[in-house]
């Protein structure tokens, strides 16, 4: 058995802080919605507002990180293997079949994950942020965008919240479909995921290739140029 370093420090920090904030937003959000009474309405509102801002700041940092490190490529959705992945979850997993797509350092998400996370990032989260802002600044509208009633905003925000709850339930369950029940969880905490020899091999091969290509370039044609340069500096020194 080998361990492969899949999740870097910031990625794990981002995952867990975001998870905590979303959970907290849900908890306070449904209290504001009137579904129950836990910490008091006033506290729920204040905490929900603060957590919303915190999440926004976190997401800005995370977006920056994803872009500059190239990690954003992990989330590009693909149609390849979607069917295979669905079949695995619906039948294959019971027959102890192997995962159709193994984890690789450059491709940590299976096709269904890519689709779902993409949908979250492009649709659900932005909708929640925008509707959240509309809620916050409802009484200070920009002229021309003044909404008559809060109802459509509440409608959208609540639906989004229910969708997020559904996502969380399914997510919390599906992370148990790793090598062992806790292997995915441990990986997201420590960064290291246990794999057997072959899987570890597959996991690192394209990142090694990509690193090689990224950091070392052929410089055949430039031998002459370099020789010229050396000559010139040498002559200056003389």
């Amino acid at each position: 058995m080998k361990k492969v370093y899949l999740y870097k420090g910031f990625e794990r920090f981002w995952h867990w802080t975001q998870a905590f904030l979303i959970f907290f937003l849900m908890l306070t959000g449904f209290e504001i919605h009137g579904s129950y009474n836990l910490i008091g309405y006033e506290n729920a509102v204040r905490w929900h507002d603060d957590a919303g801002w915190a999440l926004l700041i976190l997401m800005i940092f995370a977006s920056f990180w994803h872009v500059t490190t190239g990690e954003w490529k992990q989330y590009i959705p693909t149609a390849k293997n979607v069917r295979a992945q669905m079949e695995y979850y619906l039948t294959g997993i019971f027959r102890n079949a192997p995962h159709p797509t193994g984890k690789r350092i450059l491709s940590k998400l299976n096709p269904i994950q890519r689709l779902v996370y993409f949908a979250l990032t492009i649709i659900v989260i932005p909708v929640m942020v925008i509707s959240g802002f509309t809620y916050l600044y409802f009484n200070y509208p920009i002229q021309g965008f003044a909404l008559d009633s809060l109802e459509p905003v509440a409608f959208i925000h609540t639906i989004g919240a229910y969708i997020l709850i559904t996502f969380v339930i399914i997510h919390l369950y599906l992370i148990t479909t790793g090598h062992t029940i806790t292997s995915n969880l441990v990986a997201m905490i420590t960064g290291w995921e246990k794999m057997d020899e072959e899987e570890a091999q597959v996991a690192v091969e394209d990142v090694i290739e990509s690193t090689k290509r990224h950091y070392v370039k052929q410089i055949n044609g430039d031998k002459k140029k370099k020789a010229k340069k050396n000559k010139n500096t040498d002559s200056e020194l003389k």
Binding site: I32, H33, G34, Y41, S149, L150, E151, A154, F155, T158
Partner: peptide, 12 residues
């Protein structure tokens, strides 16, 4: 009017 905490849409 819609008052958060008091009103809900039963379909939602």
């Amino acid at each position: 009017f819609y008052l958060p905490g008091r009103d809900t849409n039963w379909q939602v």
